[in-house]
């Protein structure tokens, strides 16, 4: 399980990383935290000629809070994001999801951007990006562009990143509503494993406890994590009665295309999707109401 041979370049700046990517294109891979890339190299499932290490580029490691958006540099370590109390206050779903990401040793090294680019359909951070409709800034030598999460995730382990592009920043929308709650949960065989199914939700309520904004999504049950903005819209203006909640969750589950493996059948995954979606929506709603 030794990696195949490759050449290594440590990029000192974003420009240098982009320059190297433009030179090597398809034969290069970006190395950030390496927590997914290195095992795939060990299994010899990937054989890039070059690894371009962006993990030492300081300008890719930051958390910047603005009124309506929290910006994180792509190479910010997961543990840094998890421990940032101010960020957790603005985008609570991130911290809630990170508690399910691997183990401490993984989060100490793994980066926010690395998990998104890896685009595992069961992974937690891509799901959060989908639910919150995060925007992803990517850079090539020719310049930057910004993608929505929906456009970014194109399939299992695949994204809209071009071979010469590098993810540089993730913009997490901050909801303006005073009474906002969120919840994240998942079912896995063991603690810390990739989810069989994961679900997250964020809900805001008015002073009367009526939902004024809702978002939720499910991971692990389709080729990409899926958010359900239209179904969430049905919850707005309601007080989350059980029948409606169940119906919304069931419709979400019905819209998924789960796969099967030794741990979970498609039917079980679909079932879990409905159960977990109901739970996170209810929990987010309850938290939001309590925050009034």
């Amino acid at each position: 399980m030794k990696s195949p041979a490759f050449e290594y370049a440590r990029a000192a700046s974003i420009d240098e990383a982009c320059e190297l990517l433009s030179q090597h294109g398809d034969s290069a891979k970006v190395l950030a935290g390496g927590q997914s890339l290195v095992p795939m190299m060990a299994f010899r499932l990937l054989r890039p000629h070059w690894l371009i290490d962006i993990s030492e580029i300081a300008p890719l490691q930051y958390i910047a809070l603005e009124t309506d958006v929290a910006r994180t540099g792509a190479c910010t370590r997961q543990c840094t994001v998890q421990c940032d109390a101010t960020l957790a206050a603005q985008v609570p779903l991130l911290r809630q999801a990170l508690a399910f990401v691997g183990h401490a040793q993984i989060r100490n090294r793994g980066t926010i951007g690395g998990s998104l680019v890896q685009a595992d359909p069961s992974a937690e951070l891509p799901l959060v990006a989908q639910i919150l409709q995060a925007r992803l800034v990517v850079r090539a030598k020719s310049g930057p562009r910004t993608l929505t999460a929906e456009d970014f995730f194109t399939g299992p382990m695949t994204t809209a990143l071009a071979p010469d592009e590098c993810l540089t920043e993730i913009q997490w929308p901050v909801w303006p509503d005073r009474s906002t709650g969120s919840a994240f949960t998942e079912v896995s065989r063991r603690h810390g494993d990739f989810a069989m199914v994961a679900a997250g939700a964020q809900v805001a309520v008015d002073a009367a406890g009526q939902c004024i904004r809702a978002a939720f999504g499910v991971g692990g049950a389709a080729p990409t994590p899926v958010a359900f903005p239209d179904l969430a819209q049905r919850l707005v203006g309601t007080s989350f009665n059980q029948a409606l909640l169940r119906d919304v969750a069931q419709q979400a589950a019905a819209a998924l295309e789960p796969g099967a493996d030794t741990h979970a059948s498609a039917a079980y995954r679909r079932h879990l999707a409905a159960v977990l979606a109901t739970r996170v929506l209810q929990s987010a709603y309850d938290t939001a109401r309590a925050a009034r």
């Binding site: 990696s3 290594y8 390496g34 095992p39 060990a42 299994f43 401490a104 090294r109």
Partner: peptide
């Protein structure tokens, strides 16, 4: 050698990480 068992844990700049998932050159 694929980042699950933790036997290779070391501290890098004071934080525990898996040394099988880091290239020495890094």
């Amino acid at each position: 050698e694929h980042g699950i068992c933790g036997a290779c844990s070391i501290m890098l700049d004071g934080a525990p990480v898996r040394s099988c998932l880091i290239y020495a050159v890094q």
